[in-house]
Amino acid sequence: MTSVFGIPVAVILGQLMLGLVNGSFYAMLSLGLAVIFGLMGVVNFAHGAFYTLGAFAALLALQLFGINYWVALIVAPLAVGALGMAVERLLLRRVYGLDPLYGLLLTFGLALICEGSLNQVFGATGQSYPVPPALAGGFNLGFMFLPLYRAWVIAVSVVVCFSTWYVIERTRLGATLRAARENTPLLQSFGVNVPLLMAATFGGGVALAALAGVLASPIVLVNSYMGSSLVIVVFAVVVIGGMGSILGSIVGGLALGVIEGFTKVLYPEASNVVVFLIMALVLILRPAGLFGRD
């Protein structure tokens, strides 16, 4: 078998695939964070909790009401997005214009409450969500066996991320969002309902996190802390891509997933820290992030 640096190509390609799957989650989560931060200046520490809620929503919908995966894929993000809008209207709105620290503390507190409550009700042991029958099985790519479900995750993530990018960069709604990040009072003076726009944006960002949660539920154990472990890496991705940069979070998310995957092959000991090393390097060389402006 062919090999590079003494490592079989099949192993490298296998890790590339796994890296892309992880990167898909990084991209979707950091995209939501970037949209929220860009428009509202809020660092949403509760983002991981909304991801967890998405997974729990799918799990409970199945267990309690027999709602299948395909319906959950639509309904869970909508429900969690609506919850996000309520959080924005009732709580987050009060910290706009204050030091960003307050928004950070508020959302961090919300994350703790959410995780603690889920832990209290469902316990710390994870529960598994069955892979939907239509996505069971896989392809033999020759060099590896690719589970169909993982291919599905990558495809959904890429489609969702680039659709979001398209909406923001190429449509009239997106132009309004970009204008809101640049000069909000003026936009409101033109008659745009900016408070509603803010609530909808937060709801949208959070719905993306919930969608990622539903997608993740068949491949990870659904438990109350699934979000908090992931979101730390996601924050590093956001910093690397550039705070608030849409393209930065998509490209950065996918790329860092892959880099992490390769590191697992080349030097497994470093795989947990490689993202943070890259973050440190980026902060030294290009503090605004790879795609950041200023």
Partner: peptide, 29 residues
């Protein structure tokens, strides 16, 4: 935004043209 809806158009000091929008996007905003 409710005041604007009464038919008021505002051209701010220093023009308030959006840098992240094209000319046409600014016009249609």
């Amino acid at each position: 935004h409710r005041i604007a809806a009464l038919g008021v158009g505002y051209c701010p000091e220093e023009r308030g043209i959006y840098a992240s929008l094209s000319t046409e996007e600014n016009l249609m905003l």
